[in-house]
Amino acid sequence: MAVDALQQEWDPRLKALIGDASPRASERLAALALRAIDPAVRHATTTQLAHLTAADRADVATMCRDRLTALLRAVQRGERTVPVPDLEDFARASADAMCRDYLRRTRPALAKLANRIRLIATRGVGIVGWTTPKGQPVLGLPAWTDQPPLEAPFPWHGRVKDWWGKGHAAVDGPALTPTVVRVLELAGAPVPSEAVAAVIFEVTGSADTGTRVDASPEGDEPELAVLDAGVGPDHLAIARRYLERAWKELLAMPPQMRASLLLSLRDHHGSALLPVFHCAGVTPLRLVADALEMKPDETAAIWAHLPWDDKAIGRRLGLTGLQVLNARTVARSRLLRHMALRDQR
C-alpha cells in the first residue's frame, strides 16, 4: 500500500485538534467554531432562508451550529473518518446543505418542482443548467453560460403578477417546460434554479400543504442490543456467536459496502475493530482478506495501519470519500437491521 494512500488530508487547524484533550484544545475548538462556523451558518441562513421568520431562521441556525460543532468534537475524539481539507469551505457547504434539507422537508411541493425544473435542463430542450464558481445551481439559455446569474432581490420581487403578465404557467406536466423558458426569457439572464422554482410556484398560486416528518435515515435505526462485557465461558460463547452472525451478514453485503465499513471500523479509542473477528477465532486472516478482495499478504501489510480514513478507503475502492461515507452508512443500517431481525427470531 502506497504511503500516500494512508496520509490524511486535513485542515492543519483540525489536524492539530485530533486526540488533543487538553483545556487549550477546547479553547481552540471554541475559537474555530466562532471564526469558521458562525459566518458560514449566518451566510447560509440569510441567503437561503430569507423568506422565513426570524425565529425559524434562528432555529435552523442553531441546528446547523450544533451539528458543525459536534463535528469539531468528533474530530477531536478521532471519530471523524472523512478528512476535512478546508474548514471554512466545509462549514459553508454543510450549512448550505442543511438549509436545503430543511427546505426540502418543510416545503416538499416546492422541492419537487425544483427537481422537475432541473431535470428539464438535462433534456436538451433549449434550457441548460450549470453551477457557478460559488456552487450555486443556475438555469439559463445555452448562450448565457458566461453571464453572472441574477441575484436577489429579483426583478419580479413584490410584483410577480405584473411581471408575468397573462401567459399560462404550470408546475407540472409538459407545460412546465415552456413556463421555465418564459421565466428565463423575461429575466433575460441566468437565474438560480431555486428562484425559478419559487417564482413559478408564486405565479401559479401553488402552496405547500404540509411539512414532512423528519425523514432522516439516521433516526430510525433499530436499537442494537449491545453486549455487556463480561467474563466466563458462557459470555465468551455468546460474544463469539454474535460476531459470527455479524460476519455472516457482512459477507452477504456487496463488496464495496463491506469494505467501506470494515476498513474504517474503530472503537471509542480510535483502534481498529476489524482484528476483532480473527482474534475471536471467527474467521482466519485469509478469509478476512477475501472479504476485502485483497491478497493475504496485502491485508497483513495494512493491518497495523487500520483503521483507514475514508479518503484512503476511497482510493482503494475507486470511490470518493463521500461515496465511502454513504456506503458505510448503508452498511451500518443494514447490519443493524438484520442483526435486530435475527434477535427477534
Partner: peptide, 21 residues
C-alpha cells in the same frame, strides 16, 4: 471476545459524525 463484540456493537450503533447532508 466479549470486549471485542461489545466494542463492535457500540461502533455500529454510534451515529456517524457527518454534518454533510
Amino acid at each position: 471476545a466479549s470486549f471485542g463484540a461489545e466494542a463492535f456493537g457500540r461502533a455500529l450503533a454510534a451515529p456517524e459524525a457527518r454534518p454533510e447532508s
